[in-house]
Computed example of a mutant assay.
Amino acid sequence: MQKISPFLWFDNQAEEAVTFYTSVFNNSKIGKTTRYGEAGPGPAGTVMVAEFELEGLHFTALNGGPMFKFTEAISMSIDCKDQAEVDYFWNRLSEGGQTSQCGWLKDKFGLSWQVIPEALPRLLGDADAAKAARVMLAMLQMTKIDVAMLEAAHAG
């Protein structure tokens, strides 16, 4: 059992979100789902809590009502091996949501994601400060991260 896990508060879209997220990630599954009964506080039969797993990480989704919204202060970061993975996750997760700078996006539920290729931290961490600076400047111009452009900036 995972000691600490993300607990995501939705208004009333927990079931839709869990279904969506498990369709995006290949290594995923839906776990136990608990529904509201006649005592409420949500409508009887609707999801109260749904457990799910993405890439080995356990999550819980709650339909808690409209009081709280997601913010960029918390995001899910996806480590991508190459541009094809970046493109896949970027396209799937941004559909119906909104994109932002430097590989960040909000999905259609308002949850923030960072879609990051393994090349980015490697190139930003180059011991040659001039190369790392060129990579940073290139990244700051991007929404979705483009590995080829990062590598070109790194090369000078």
Rank of each mutant, 00 (worst) to 15 (best):
N63K: 09
N12R: 15
W104N: 00
E95S: 14
S112A: 15
V135Y: 04
C80V: 06
Y36F: 15
V47E: 01
F89N: 03
A61T: 03
A73K: 12
E118Y: 13
S94T: 13
M48W: 11
F7T: 08
K29M: 13
I78L: 15
A50F: 02
S75L: 13
A17L: 05
V135W: 04
N91P: 02
A61Y: 02
N27S: 14
P66H: 04
R134S: 08
P41I: 08
G125C: 10
F68T: 09
N91A: 10
G31F: 03
S94N: 07
N27T: 13
F7L: 13
V49A: 11
V115L: 01
L93P: 04
C102W: 02
M139T: 14
K29S: 15
W104F: 14
E72Y: 11
G103F: 06
T99I: 14
E15S: 13
L120P: 01
A17H: 03
W104Q: 00
E118N: 13
G45F: 12
T34G: 03
V18Y: 03
G64K: 09
C102D: 01
A138E: 15
E15G: 12
Q83K: 05
F109E: 00
E85Q: 15
G42H: 07
A61I: 02
G64V: 11
G96C: 12
S112F: 14
R122S: 10
G65E: 03
F109N: 00
S94E: 01
C102E: 01
H58N: 12
P41H: 08
S77W: 06
S28H: 05
S23W: 09
V47S: 05
E55L: 15
E118H: 13
P43H: 07
W104M: 04
L105S: 05
W9Y: 15
I74E: 00
A133Q: 11
F89H: 11
E38G: 10
E85W: 11
L123A: 03
F20Y: 12
A130R: 06
E95K: 14
C102Q: 02
A133P: 01
A39L: 07
V24D: 03
A39V: 07
Y21T: 09
G45R: 09
D79L: 13
G56D: 10
P121M: 09
D126N: 15
V115E: 00
G103S: 07
M136D: 07
F109K: 00
F59S: 02
E16R: 12
M76P: 01
A17P: 03
D107A: 14
D107Y: 15
A129R: 08
G45V: 10
L120F: 06
L62E: 00
K131W: 04
N12P: 07
G96F: 11
Q101F: 11
L54Y: 06
G31A: 04
L105R: 05
I74N: 10
A133F: 01
L105E: 03
Q101D: 12
K81Y: 04
G37F: 08
M67W: 10
E53P: 02
E38R: 12
W9D: 09
E72M: 13
L57Y: 08
F70V: 05
C80Y: 06
